[in-house]
Design a protein around this nucleic acid. Sequence first.
DNA 1: CCTCGACGATCAGGATACGCATAAATGTCC
DNA 2: GGACATTTATGCGTATCCTGATCGTCGAGG
Lengths: 225, 225
Amino acid sequence: MRILIVEDEPTLGQQLKSTLEQNGYAVDLSTDGEDGHFLGSTEEYDAVILDLGLPEIDGLTVLGMWRKEGRKFPVLVLTARDSWSDKVAGLDAGADDYLAKPFQTEELIARLRALIRRASGNTSSELTAGDVRLDTRSGRVTLKGEPVKLTAQEYKLLSYLMHHKGKVVSRTELIEHIYDQDFDRDSNTIEVFVTRIRKKLGAEVITTIRGLGYSLDDPADQPRA
Amino acid sequence: MRILIVEDEPTLGQQLKSTLEQNGYAVDLSTDGEDGHFLGSTEEYDAVILDLGLPEIDGLTVLGMWRKEGRKFPVLVLTARDSWSDKVAGLDAGADDYLAKPFQTEELIARLRALIRRASGNTSSELTAGDVRLDTRSGRVTLKGEPVKLTAQEYKLLSYLMHHKGKVVSRTELIEHIYDQDFDRDSNTIEVFVTRIRKKLGAEVITTIRGLGYSLDDPADQPRA
DNA sequence: CCTCGACGATCAGGATACGCATAAATGTCC
DNA sequence: GGACATTTATGCGTATCCTGATCGTCGAGG
């Protein structure tokens, strides 16, 4: 999953970035409103963390612009103080959740996870497809109850597919969502990891749709396939 | 485990701090409400000891603010006298336990231990994983019944992992919970202690999840692995 | 029905970052 | 001041990731 952080204070921003990366997210960091707005408008993110107290352009303005442009990613708003008016304004402008500074990183992670989960239409933190089960809280994957060891990239790829079960996901979409900004787009890493995952979880979990991409289907959703 | 003490009387506060440290806790001490509130909001604590009779901001107010902000750590409230009304108000405001001054440090420790245990979802004061058993009351660790000598830091690290059995714990999370406020975040002490613990208890007790952190698994939870 | 082209799957080698282990330096407590 | 615990520093080994090449397969058109 790929996250955008818009935070003017460099120390906090950098710290957030590395914390999130340690939790398996691909993270882009922007330190001003204009650049942040541009990134959010051009790149693909699964969630955005937005500080309201930005220099130059206000965070609320940026959020408003995104929504007007039709960007739908969930936005978690950070605000300097527990100011009630900011909260109302934020939610009005289209924020999906709200966290007052200062905050604990663990809570931020928990909320972010919940936002991404809800945005993809899932209600539980446990995603299942056939015999495969993925727990987004503990970061564990099991096959028929047996724990399976996945590497970081394998996990990211599988996680994205499971969050979009049934949808056909193109290779470029996968690259955009599991790598951050600077990454060589034409490479066959995706294929390599799909192969690896199939080896560990069984070939049938990921279906190839020639010319379009991949799709992860839950047999339970299709009585006969 | 990391504790925050908010106590205006310096003598008592300092004394509590060193007692708790002797019992294997990492302790931050704050002598006024405002600073205490800030610490509780920004740092990661496994429990908080809060004196109600504070100058400037009242202890109850601080507690109320924390709960409103969504802070979930267990709070043990200290009050000057055995005043019934204070107790009711404290529990109302979200306190988890209550102790009247003067008190025996033994009792404080015992209650603290119980609070932390309950907060992590454990019911017994004895935590086990495979052949390893950790008694939070005596601070003793045994391997297949044989007592094992652990140093203070080794114990803290193991204890935190055993309180969160099965969860993937990142290195920063470990640092935040076994060291107090001022500590150099980028150092490799965690790795060193993990190595030491593995040497004493066997390499299999702590699993490494590359790029994410460590995890302590109980073989009993996974029928066959 | 066969052939060819395009796309995807697979494999193996090399680069790299990550975690491990050890030793040396520093700190702390009797 | 000595013993022990803790932290820092450093080299090593290896899992993981990426690259590029080759092999396999699907499907359209002849």
